[in-house]
Structures are given as C-alpha cells and as structure tokens.
C-alpha cells in the first residue's frame, strides 16, 4: 500500500546553532512545531513528496516564557495551553478567549503559538488577536553564517489576503506582547476554521475611553481563507466618538466595514458577510452597555 513512499529523515536540533546548521544543510526540510496543522491536511500521509523534517521541540530557547515589567515574551514552541494557563493578570483577556476558542485542551496541549501563526493557507483567529494587541514577532533568518533577526508587528506577517510573508529560511523565535490595559475587549468566533473555513468568522476588538470619549479603538476581522482585516480609517472614525453609539452610528460603521471588506477583493461568502456585520454590531452594543454601566 505504501510502496515507493520515502520515510523522511528527522532532524532534532537541540540548540540554535544546530538548527541553523540543519536549516542550511537541508533547505527543503519542513519545520515541525506541534504538527496539528500539518497532520490535519488530507494529503499528509501517504504522500510521495515527503520532505525531511526539522523538529523544533528540543530547543530550550523556543519553549521559554519570559516576563519583564513591560512585556511578556514567549518562545514559538510554547503550547497554546501553557499560554492560556499563564494567568489572567498577564495574558490579555481577548488572547485568553482566543486560545480557549482555538480548540479543546487536548488540541491546545499539542498546538504551539509559532505553529498557529505560521499555518500557510488558513488564518486562525490568533493572528488577528495578536495583531490587535500590537504584538511583535521576532523572525530569524537561518542562513549560515548570516543569521539576522528582525522584529515585525504581527500584522506584517501576512499580506491583506492572509498569505504568510515569512521567507522559507526564516523561523519565529519570539513573540512579544505588552501589558497594555484596555477598558473594553471583545472576542467572538463563529464557526470552526478547521472544519468549516468557508463559514467561519472571528472578530477581536479592543477599546479605551476616557469620560465616555473613545481614545483608542482597534479591531480585526479574521476569515480563514480571506486573511485578516484591520481598517485604520474605520478605527479613526470611531476614535473621538462619544459613547454610547447611537443605533444609526452602529449601523453606519458596520455598513462601512462590510464595504471596506468587499473592496479588498477578498473571498467572502454571503454568510460570512452577514456574520461579520452582526458580530461587529454585537460588539458595539456590548461596548455601549459597559460604558453606560460605568457611568
């Protein structure tokens, strides 16, 4: 049944230096984090073109969680369950909600943050949430002897349609998130990106206000096949607005959002469009409720 199928060689580097060496020698190798995405593809096994595998699980630096006064830094091999267990005081609320929404504990124990960010053809809600939280990602080029590192905002990891912009010889080495506190945060995911990607929509929204005037408003709509969408013009439109939003304002902003998504030529189904509109309206209504309750 499996005649002619090559058993891929497995390289398990234990240090960064070993990783650079393996990456330089085996340029076509696949980087293996948790494996949940790679193995859930229908064509994973058996397949004729099986590339060598570089497993990242034995590199201690990649499993490190580091907290300073200003930010939290996690390695790419930190599992989603570990991240969710760090504590509500440290991990921002929308991220905790996103992590719990990504899968059950059994899956979260295996999936890693680096792997979740690097899925090539599907965008998970975590990318959008990290982009809204102004998280930065450290990318390292593994071309010996030039192993350069650079920090990029999460939003710059993908193009507008959600395609991954990391070069083949680059890996995520750290994810850095600040402790900025927002007055209101909202996360909602409708559908399951791994099962029904054509129907799934998720929204992450954070907002700060001072004496009922919005001072900061950031949101991201994530569509598994349609990338993630942040619209600065809508964010600017909301900033400076007095809370609560009127019913007309909510309808207007939601309409502008749908028009903005349509203008990006993203593949979005009618159901997804309706879901985006309703979830966004729901978020704004909740923001209204919270701001009124605090008066």
């Amino acid at each position: 049944m499996y005649e002619g199928i090559r058993s891929p060689a497995i390289h398990v580097p234990k240090t960064m230096r070993d990783l650079v060496s393996a990456a330089t020698r085996f340029r076509n190798a696949i980087y293996w984090a948790g494996g949940t995405y790679i193995m859930s593809r229908h064509d994973y096994y058996p397949t004729k073109d099986s590339y060598d595998i570089i497993s990242l699980r034995e590199i201690p630096d990649f499993k490190r969680i580091n907290r300073t006064d200003r930010y939290l830094e996690v390695g790419p091999m930190v599992t989603l369950n570990q991240l969710a267990s760090i504590g509500k005081q440290i991990v921002p609320d929308p991220l905790t909600q996103t992590l719990h929404e990504l899968g059950t504990r059994i899956v979260r124990k295996q999936a890693t943050i680096g792997g979740a960010l690097c899925t090539p053809d599907i965008r998970l809600a975590i990318s959008g949430t990290l982009a809204v939280l102004n998280t930065e990602i450290e990318l390292k080029k593994l071309d010996a002897p030039h192993t350069e590192s650079r920090w990029v905002p999460t939003g710059k990891l993908y193009d507008r349609n959600g395609r991954l912009l990391i070069a083949k010889n680059e890996v995520i080495t750290r994810v850095r998130m600040g402790f900025d506190h927002e007055d209101f945060s909202y996360f909602f995911c409708s559908g399951n990106p791994m099962v029904i990607p054509d129907e799934t929509v998720s929204l992450t929204l954070v907002c700060s206000y001072n004496q009922s005037v919005i001072t900061n408003f950031r949101f991201c709509v994530t569509l598994p096949y349609g990338g993630f969408h942040q619209f600065q013009d809508i964010e600017v439109l909301a900033r400076g607005t007095m809370l609560p939003f009127s019913a007309q304002q909510i309808l207007r902003i939601a309409k502008v959002l749908i028009e903005a998504i349509e203008s990006t030529n993203t593949t979005i189904s009618a159901l997804q469009k309706e879901r985006v509109r309703r979830i966004f309206e729901m978020a704004l209504h909740q923001l209204n409720t919270q701001s009124l309750a605090e008066r």
Partner: peptide, 12 residues
Amino acid sequence: EAVLSCLIPAFR
C-alpha cells in the same frame, strides 16, 4: 495525556 492519535507522527 489524552491525544488525537491522527495528529501524532511516528517520530514522536
């Protein structure tokens, strides 16, 4: 620990 066996490769 409970795992989905379809997501565990032989090398692990």
